[in-house]
Design a protein around this nucleic acid. Structure first.
Ligand SMILES: [Mn+2]
Ligand SMILES: [Mn+2]
Ligand SMILES: [Mn+2]
Ligand SMILES: [Mn+2]
Lengths: 137, 137
DNA sequence: GGCAAATTGTAGCAATGGCTACGGATGCTG
DNA sequence: CAGCATCCGTAGCCATTGCTACAATTTGCC
C-alpha cells in the first residue's frame, strides 16, 4: 500500500531518505579507510576522523551494529560486516567519481573535496553514470 | 581563537554546516514560490509542498522567524523578510543551475529534479561557477 | 449571527546526532 | 605487577525534525 504523494513532494521525501543514510555511508567508508591505513579502527580514530566527540561515535557505532553494517565489542576494535564492506566499497567508488568529476569541470581540489563530501550522498546511480561517462570522454 | 582542525576533518564540519542551513533554504525558496504562484503562503501550503505534517511546518516556521528569514502571526499567512527573500533568490538560482547542469550532462529530467534537491545545498559558489561556465559553453 | 469545516497551534512522544562530566576497562611501563 | 594514562561506555543535557492527538482560531455558508 503506497501512500500516493503529490509528484512535487516526492523529491523531498527522497532527499530525507538520502540524509538518513548519510551517516552510515560516511562511517563505513571511514572504517574501511582507517583499517586499510592503520590495520584497525577504534572509536577514537573515528572521533578524530570526523572531528566529533568519542561519545557521538560510540552511539552511532552501536546503531550501525544494530543495522548489521559493522561489528564491535566493548573496548574492542571495529570491523565491517559483509554488508558494511559492500556499502563502503560502493560509497568509496561513488565518492571518488564525484570528486574526480568536480575537478574535471574545473573546481579546485580543496573545494571539490569539501563539496563532494556532501554531494555524494545525493547522487543517484543514474547521475553517477552520467558523471562516469563524462569522465571517460 | 580557532580550534585548529586536522585538515581532513574540515570537510565533515563543512557538510554539517550545510545541512544545518538546508531546511532554511528549502523553506524560504518554497515560500517565495508559493506566494508567486498563489498570492499567499499558509502553513498547510508548505505541509503539502514538503509532504510533512502541518505541525512540523509550524515549528520550523517559528524557528525561521526567530532567525529573521520570514514573518508571520498566529493563523496568518507567511511572508519573507528582506533577508529571507535574498536567501530565496540565491537558493532558487543555485537550484536551477544545478538542475540544468545535471540535465546538461545527460541525466533525465525526473532524476535530475530529485538529485538536485539534495545536491544544491552542498554546492559552493566555486562549484556553482564551474557549473555555470559549463552551461554557457 | 451562528454553526461547521478548515486551518493552525500546543502537548507530548520518538529518533538522530551534537555535547560535557564522570566512571570503568585496557594496556603500557617503570 | 602495580599504577597511571589512554580509551571507551554511560548518564544526562540540548537542538532538530518527524509524528498523533487534541485544542483553539478563523472562515465560509446558511
Ligand atoms: Mn564519503
Ligand atoms: Mn559524505
Ligand atoms: Mn533542497
Ligand atoms: Mn545533504
Amino acid at each position: 500500500m503506497q501512500e500516493d504523494k503529490k509528484p512535487n513532494s516526492v523529491r523531498f521525501s527522497r532527499t530525507r531518505k538520502h540524509h538518513a543514510n548519510e551517516t552510515a555511508e560516511d562511517y563505513v567508508e571511514a572504517v574501511a579507510e582507517i583499517i586499510d591505513a592503520s590495520g584497525e579502527c577504534r572509536v577514537l580514530d573515528l572521533a578524530k576522523y570526523f572531528d566529533v566527540s568519542h561519545v557521538t561515535v560510540s552511539r552511532i557505532v552501536k546503531r550501525l551494529q544494530g543495522e548489521d553494517l559493522l561489528v564491535t565489542r566493548p573496548y574492542r576494535p571495529i570491523s565491517l560486516t559483509k554488508q558494511g564492506a559492500k556499502m563502503a566499497k560502493y560509497a568509496k567508488q561513488r565518492h571518488e567519481i564525484v570528486l574526480d568529476f568536480l575537478v574535471a569541470i574545473g573546481v579546485d581540489a580543496q573545494t571539490a573535496e569539501i563539496d563532494s563530501e556532501g554531494i555524494e550522498h545525493h547522487v543517484s546511480s543514474k547521475t553517477l553514470a552520467a558523471m562516469k561517462s563524462f569522465l571517460t570522454k
